[in-house]
Amino acid sequence: MKKVLEVKDLNVFFDTYKAEVQAVRGVSFDVHEKETLAIVGESGSGKSVTSQSIMKLIPMPPGKFAGGSIKFNGEELLDKSEKQMEDIRGKEISMIFQDPMTSLNPTMTVGKQIAESLIKHQNMSKSQARKRGLELLELVGIPNPDARIDQYPHEYSGGMRQRAMIAIALACNPKLLIADEPTTALDVTIQAQILDLMRDLQDKVNTSIILITHDLGVVANAAHRVAVMYGGKIVETGTVDEIFYNPTHPYTWGLLGSMPDLDRDGEEELQAIPGTPPDLSDPPKGCPFAARCPYAMKVCENHMPDYFELSDTQKSACWLLDERSPKVEPPESAKVGGSKRDEE
């Protein structure tokens, strides 16, 4: 499959008044055509910084790229000027943010906010943009678009605002859509609707999606492949099935163990991961998860493990996969919905 996006060894640092925070440290991943890649991790793991780096929306200073490469359709984005990036943002790559309550301009009608990128990127006139805006609102499932297009964001509900955000993001049929926690701020019932909508539209407009989330439930629902981030690094990556049914990194186990599951026995408790994420202004020398890892070995503290390739699609950075380390079975809590695992 053709690669839309190739991120290689990306490093993004921030200068704070205390110290340099190494938010993203050597992250590499690809996004293929028409696929959804989920980047999963807890807050502070670097997932949002990674996504905003692709758009080059990191404020600089205090942020800075400290090496690496981001290739979009074969072109290096880090070499592009701000002017060239403007032509890519909103047209080739779009973005949806977490909180629909704050991500729309409160003093501008929704219609005008959709029209802006159409006028900028498609050279449409105001009336053409309005017509296209109506179609888009219809497409994202907003009832009565004729009336809604002239309303302000505060007249929309939370779910409708996120639909409007999606309409803005998809206005120019982008090749890549970055959705940064698009459902976190929404009610559970609305969450499912928004995810369904994104999946539907992905088929219709043939876009690739990077889905940033901390919620593995969302991942199972919407993604093809998963990258698990921790401490500014990708610790494990694989297809959804591989990550859910054959996880190999203790942090992935922890994430799966802390996911509520209806199939799970009532007696089994949700497992929290003890401890706090590492301080990225002074990152650990070895594996970032070592301090919280129940299986940590001496080597973990001093050496960052390489990726062990488990299949064509699955890679994991954990010393447990070295043949010299003791055999460790994933804990019961990390096993998803037992039944499917038995079938295999």
Partner: peptide, 26 residues
């Protein structure tokens, strides 16, 4: 630093338009 300014930038609007059309009025 608000989200809707990020949205406006993510649309590919240039800094001047973002400042005058989106930021100033708010």
């Amino acid at each position: 630093s608000s989200d809707y300014i990020k949205t406006a930038k993510a649309k590919g609007l240039n800094e001047r338009v973002v400042t005058y059309r989106h930021a100033l009025r708010n």
